[in-house]
Write a protein that binds this DNA or RNA. Structure first.
Lengths: 212, 212
DNA sequence: TGACAGTGAGACATATTCTGTCTTAGTGTC
DNA sequence: GACACTAAGACAGAATATGTCTCACTGTCA
């Protein structure tokens, strides 16, 4: 597994204590059971087997802080799985194809996100577009950009990851009938125009492929 | 379909208006989404596409009344399905076997009850035992006892239905490894001791079979 | 046209719940 | 015995839910 630049990810890979993990897992459980908008701090503490006082000590600031931490926690887990999925790819194309298909599959399989979408569409869609997208791009870049170092300079890889993250989010939120990004072959063809080659050649870039 | 004695069921088979049905269906939807304990009157009204004022006008008394009405509504639907399931049985044995297997299967398949069990175990278990069982026996008897008229006198059929309803509830709440009441043949064998025969013969009644 | 039943929107007081902070008493560890 | 950590729960204030109202609007009859 490639080493992750700690400077790019000052807050990621946080190592939570047992009690903190219990709380963060409890957030997930409670959200799955009741939907985000119905979960209270009491619910989380009870589910975590922790007193409310302890919860506020672990996460000073209360509910918002806990939910923020939970998002980071989920993001960490997401990229753990994704990096494992990508591991072993030895060409740029293979790396990107696996990253994209892996992301989409993981997002589709993630009951948690699905339920969040179902129970509070406005909030999550907003998180993934207006509010949350910049953070997701930042975190995703922190994880993924270093993986591209063998293939291109940083400037270029940043732009590429930025673009691909936006595409993945868009195609997750609004799946297209035209391309199935869970399928590696389809994704390979789809990505071709975006993948720079050492031997540059004219691309069939078609702006219609980009949807928001 | 056998006619139902209206005297035995003064409140069942209520004919709800469109708006009332919308509200009662909304209760179901909301409970499935958030769990019973998290549902508010606002949620129900919004889901039903009805103003809160209208909801209180349709069900004067508010939340409790709506939820009670919803239980009656669900019970009606349950027995509609069950009667259809039982329809066509021409022997007492077949009638009872179908009633029992049909009940258990329907209960197991009912997401709504399953979710209620999952999200508020205490309340539902209490409803099906301490508080709700007498009403369930009453309603079930109203539906089922008349079906037994061709086979036995009322006194006997009342006692039999009473017993079978208790067994069904018990085996639904706490399934046994010893007998599968979704299986008709197993159920036939299981019910044999309880089914009176025109030509009475010694039964192998085994009290261990009864669980509470 | 006008009476009328039914409705949505929302104001309102009350009741209930949730939040975040605090104190207390109880654990186990060094 | 000092220490860090915790559960339990009191507490005030904020937020939300409940149930009752009023009012304006709509469509339907006569």
């Amino acid at each position: 597994m490639t080493a992750i630049d700690p400077i790019l990810m000052p807050d990621a890979r946080a190592n939570w204590s047992d009690a903190e993990v219990a709380v963060l897992e409890a957030v997930k459980t409670c959200c799955e059971r009741w939907g985000v908008e119905k979960v209270t701090v009491d619910d989380i503490a009870r589910q975590a087997g922790v007193s409310r006082a302890t919860l506020y000590r672990l996460f000073p600031g209360g509910k918002e802080v806990v939910f923020d931490a939970h998002r980071v926690y989920e993001l960490d887990q997401f990229f753990d799985v994704l990096l494992a999925h990508v591991d072993g790819a030895d060409t740029l194309e293979e790396l990107l194809v696996r990253a994209v298909t892996g992301s989409i599959r993981e997002l589709r399989a993630d009951e948690h996100i699905a339920i969040m979408l179902a129970s509070e569409p406005g909030a999550v869609v907003s998180d993934l577009t207006v509010d949350g997208l910049p953070r997701i791009i930042r975190v995703a870049s922190a994880y993924l950009v270093p993986l591209l170092d063998p293939f291109m300079p940083r400037d270029q890889s940043r732009a590429l990851v930025d673009l691909l993250v936006r595409l993945v989010v868009s195609y997750f939120l609004a799946p297209s009938d035209l391309v199935d990004l869970t399928d590696r072959d389809e994704t390979r063809a789809f990505l071709a125009p975006f993948i720079p080659t050492p031997d540059p050649q004219p691309t069939d870039f078609d702006p219609h492929l980009i949807q928001t």
